[in-house]
Design a protein around this nucleic acid. Structure first.
Length: 393
DNA sequence: TCTGGGGTCCTAGGACCC
DNA sequence: TCTGGGGTCCTAGGACCC
């Protein structure tokens, strides 16, 4: 049987776990910017009880936050990665869960070698309690015959107190569980698919399960069909993913809107350089540098423009100057006067392993000359912080 | 005033091959 | 009027995830 572990209100739980005095208080984690922007990313049960929700901009709830002394924690991804790594190691060391894989920063999957509901509940409870004891992070566990059904079980574990955080979904109670579940709560059904299914009169997971396979294939293609099969208890999702990222991205929504290409260029240079550093850290090279630019989509009164351009490099590289140069040229190709820009970013794609890299017969030996320099800057930044030293290009 | 950031996979369609 | 039949590879964009 498949096990799914989901950390409850993960970012907020990490803050409560690591900062004494936060327990029992309304806490929200937000990516606050210098001019008061930012949205709520995670919140504790106490904060939820006040009516706050994930995803709402802080400026809309300033009063509520002030009146109730809600604590705002700035988002700290490094901390969250560290704690999830710890959870990963602890569960593996415990040797109860098999094929344990990390799915995201706050979710894990594995299997248990039994289909006895009592044993499953017992094992999952042990894992859950071990995680709480060692990291103070509360988690919910779901168990069933496929990854998707295990996530359905976790949904119930989270929303019904009686489960004590562990829900086992067996074939005999599956129909009832799926009849009570809105299709929007199924893993793999997003906004677009939900709208299409609603218009066909399909609103519950059970109705989806009973729908015609060919119809679903026509509308949603293989990914939708996989979801349908998984809900019927036929596992067909493979979580084995390459260890290295296939794309590397950095982007920001600016505090202000700007039409100044010099300002944009400065930002693009910074993003490109930091993407290149990430690329080298995973010992990869890339062949395409993509840049995107966008106006403020929330301002309907202003002229809108968004676009992206991908620049192909003559040969795969992780060389900062080469990547930055490509990003800047892409930016100049994209930029149009007369718009106020709010967001920009750089994405590295067509990533391959550095080792066994195909060398271009005609490429310049520039890469070689920069290599030593980048090894040193990477080492310094790793030791003293990301922006300690950078390229003045 | 103020509205996140970082990923994956799939598909259609174009360009090209013989 | 009528205009092969297969393929592959690449990319942009959409949909989804957290």
């Amino acid at each position: 049987m498949f096990l799914h572990i989901d950390c409850n209100a993960y970012f907020a739980s990490c803050e409560v776990a690591t900062r004494p005095g936060l327990a029992g208080k309304p806490v929200v984690v937000a990516n606050e910017t210098e001019n008061g922007g930012g949205v709520i990313l995670a919140l504790t049960a106490e904060a939820k009880a006040l009516g706050l929700k994930r995803g709402i901009p802080l400026f809309q709830v300033r009063n509520l936050i002030k009146m109730n002394n809600v604590i705002i924690c700035p988002v700290d991804h490094k901390k969250y990665r560290r704690i999830s790594h710890q959870i990963m190691e602890n569960v593996q060391r415990q040797e109860i869960v098999q094929d344990f894989v990390q799915y995201s920063v706050d979710e894990f999957f594995g299997t248990l070698p039994t289909d006895d509901p009592d044993e499953l509940r017992h094992y999952a409870t042990q894992v859950k309690e071990m995680i709480a004891d060692t990291t103070s992070i509360p988690v919910s566990c779901g168990l069933s015959q496929s990854y998707t059904l295990a996530k359905v079980a976790t949904h119930y574990a989270k929303h019904y107190k009686g489960y004590n955080g562990v829900c086992v979904l067996m074939p005999e109670n599956r129909q009832k569980a799926l009849s009570m579940l809105d299709i929007a709560d199924i893993w793999g059904i997003g906004r677009q698919s939900r709208a299409k299914l609603y218009s066909l009169g399909i609103r519950t997971a059970q109705q989806l399960v009973e729908s015609d396979e060919k119809l679903l294939m026509k509308i949603f293609s293989v990914s939708g069909l996989n979801t349908w099969r998984e809900l019927r208890g036929i596992p067909c999702i493979d979580l084995h993913r390459p260890a290295k990222q296939r794309s590397i991205m950095q982007s920001r929504t600016f505090a202000y809107m700007t039409d100044d290409i010099k300002t944009l260029e400065q930002d693009i240079r910074t993003y490109a350089a930091s993407c290149a550093a990430k690329l080298r850290e995973q010992k990869s090279v890339c062949r395409t540098v993509q840049v995107f630019l966008s106006t403020n989509r929330h301002r309907e009164d202003l002229a809108q423009y968004r676009n992206s351009i991908g620049v192909h490099l003559p040969s795969p590289t992780a060389d900062t100057p080469t990547i930055v140069k490509a990003a800047v040229s892409a930016l100049h190709g994209l930029y149009k006067e007369g718009f106020l820009y709010k967001q920009a970013g750089v994405i590295l794609t067509n990533i391959t392993e550095e080792e066994g890299m195909q060398l271009d017969l005609f490429s310049e030996p520039e890469d070689q000359r920069h290599r030593k320099l980048m090894q040193i800057t990477d080492a310094i930044n790793k030791k003293f912080g990301d922006d300690t030293i950078n390229f003045g290009l």
